[in-house]
Structure formats: structure tokens, C-alpha cells
Amino acid sequence: MSTLTEFGHRLSWPSVSAWRPDRRLAVVMFLAGAIVLVPAPRAPAPAERIIRIAASSYQYAPAIVRVHPGDRVTLELVSTDVVHGLYLDSYDLSLSADPGQTARLSFIADRSGTFRFRCSVTCGPLHPFMIGKLVVGTNWLGWRAAGLAILAAAAGLLWVRR
């Protein structure tokens, strides 16, 4: 333990012993906090949405589905070749459709963001890469990440050891 403590104090980057409150750090942290915490605008009123998705040859059509937060969404999965499935990330929902049959799944889109859906039934060599996306409202996580990236680049570029 004493060796590790000694090591921590002897590091020159990032230096533990040399750390002091820094105005630049405070500015960066404030901006990062603002990017993360700025509230998202209100979404339109929820509606009933029925979306038909055709699954075939390692792709979904449409590959990207857009709904509003709070919408009651019914997915109708139709397979046009072999048995395909649909697993929706984060919502942890899945369904599968036999060829020519329509499978249905209803849920409330109560989480905003972009979520992959992927085939859940082994359908061929490219099965693990059969992917679509559900976009619920605006993907604020992506926009916040982009804002943080700009801040990170500026901090990395300007913040040099003196």
C-alpha cells in the first residue's frame, strides 16, 4: 500500500501531488455540465403509430424508424424469406416472424434516443450484423456527446502543462 501511495505521489502526469484547483478546469467542468444538463425541448403530443417492417437478407425496410417520445408504437414484422426476429436494444423487447407471416409488438416509446434493433433468430452468415434503428424523438445523447467532443478537443488542444 505504501508503495502504491508513493507511486501516486511520484507520477508526473497526471500529477497527484501537483494538483491544484484550476480556473480552466472549473470552466471546462461548467461547460460540460451545461452540455449534459441543458433540458431537451418538449416533444409533440403522443400518438398511435403502426409501423410495418419487412425483414429479408440481413436488412430491415425501413432500416430506420422514427417516432415521438410517448407514442404508442405497434411494430408489424414481416419476413419475406426465412424466419427473422427483432430485438430492440434498451427496451429489451423481441418478436419473431415466420416467412409470410406478420408478427406484432406494441409498446410505449417512453425512452428517447436512438436504439438499435437486431435480428434475434439465426438467419444466415450475416445474422449478427442484421441491424436497424429506432429513433425516438431527437437523439439528445448524440448531440450532447458531439458538444462534449468539441469541448474535449478544445481542452486537449489548449490545456498544456506549464
Partner: peptide, 25 residues
């Protein structure tokens, strides 16, 4: 799957800040 995007963003930001700092140094 709920936390993977946050982990990815964190890793990418660390890589970016490290890259910019290295470039300047």
C-alpha cells in the same frame, strides 16, 4: 445495451482529448 452508449462516449472523449493533447505536445 443501456449503458454501452455512455461507455462508448466516455472512451471516445478520452481518446480525443488525449489525441489533441499529444498533437500539441
Amino acid at each position: 445495451m443501456q449503458i454501452v452508449p455512455y461507455m462508448q462516449i466516455g472512451v471516445l472523449l478520452v481518446g480525443l482529448i488525449w489525441a489533441c493533447r499529444t498533437s500539441r505536445q
